[in-house]
Write a protein that binds this DNA or RNA. Structure first.
Lengths: 215, 215
DNA sequence: GCGGTTGACGTGACGATGTTATGTAACACC
DNA sequence: GGTGTTACATAACATCGTCACGTCAACCGC
């Protein structure tokens, strides 16, 4: 058919990543040819923009962490840092549940990203939240915010992974995520009853806000 | 070259799975032809025994869960159920660390196993341990052993995954696993100081036993 | 023993995959 | 308006999983 009228340059790059995410969500195989067909180009475009399939997967992971960052940024803050941590965790799990295959792709080689700062910024929200909780006297003054955030993340990631890989049913998120958050935060020094109230408040806040997703 | 002298029948099947695990550990690509070459057969053997590559991966995951079960079974019990739970967790993480790529393969499609009972039996050890802790008065009488075991597993799995995918450094296991265990067990009703002592005892027990691995 | 049956495997081929060499059209610049 | 550069189409290549076909060894009933 010859060459098409030549569309804008970075549009193809965006389209390839978005189509890849769409194929992933629809559980269709993500191949160089299926991407090219859906986008309306040839497989060569994939090489000019990403250098090959590994580069495309890097971009897809980047897109996944960008969507996650958008969700986390949409979480409003409050005067209760523990409640905010719970809301962030709920948004994180919502992200994994909304795009399970994208979540799996994100951690297929999470150490290989186009820009690691995208993931670091999201994790930084957890560290900041843990530090605010410490400064507010909710956590022990000796609590290391980075360690608390890491444990919180690891627990949530494990739960998300087991649900996303269908080892645990979807209900496991509601059933165990708040309790795991309470466990981590109480171990960090929070008072158990207060902690439970804050976590449940942050969790149900996020549940209530589910329905007005980020643009 | 014609046909070889015809070796024993199930030996090829075992060899294929073991070579696959070895290639996985050596970070070599696991392809039908690379397996056949290393085993000394042709790719057809893979189809008579496993029906194809997905069947081989199922067998590889089964082998991974079998090795995990061996490690967990080698953990000696004591009169302190919380200490035993910690030792089981340490053995679990040792298994993931000893064969990181096998661990990743196990959870690539953990819901698709040759025999799910192999995984269930290992998880059952955690549930039994949590129930013994409850009966010993260490956990709250209302604590659901299955829920406690699930949360313990999820936290450990998340930590293991983040380390295995190189998102967190290997030291993160020593740094966070015991604290996460304490967090989960205290949330289940254990007394904090007692719990910490039990977990550290079980953890260092497993550390000390590392060096006399299971056959 | 021995012909028939069965199961495991070697050979060779097929379609699909990622990748790359080559040609070509559109834009940028002066 | 020629020139270089960028982005892409086409077509080929090697390799992948898979399968049809033929072959050989082992087993069975007699």
């Amino acid at each position: 058919m010859g060459n098409m009228p030549r569309s804008a340059d970075p549009a193809v790059r965006l389209a390839l990543v978005e189509v890849a995410a769409e194929l992933l969500a629809r559980r269709h195989p993500v191949t160089a040819r299926s991407l090219a067909d859906r986008v309306g180009t040839s497989t060569t475009a994939l090489y000019t923009h990403f250098g090959g399939m590994p580069g495309l997967w890097r971009a897809v992971r980047h897109e996944g962490f960008t969507r996650l960052a958008r969700r986390l940024a949409a979480v409003p803050g409050s005067d209760d840092p523990v409640r905010d941590l719970a809301a962030l965790g709920a948004a994180y799990l919502d992200s994994a549940r909304a795009d399970p295959f994208l979540y799996r792709a994100m951690f297929d080689a999470a150490a290989d990203l186009e820009d690691p700062a995208v993931a670091d910024r999201s994790f930084g929200l957890l560290v900041d939240g843990a530090d605010r909780a410490r400064l507010a006297g909710r956590f022990a003054g000796t609590a290391d915010p980075l360690a608390v955030a890491t444990r919180y993340w690891a627990a949530g990631h494990g739960l998300a992974m087991l649900v996303v890989t269908a080892v645990l049913p979807a209900e496991a998120l509601e059933q165990h995520a708040p309790e795991l958050a309470v466990a981590v935060f109480v171990a960090a020094g929070d008072e158990p009853d207060l902690c439970r109230a804050s976590v449940l408040a942050g969790w149900s806040d996020a549940r209530a806000r589910a329905g007005s997703p980020p643009g």
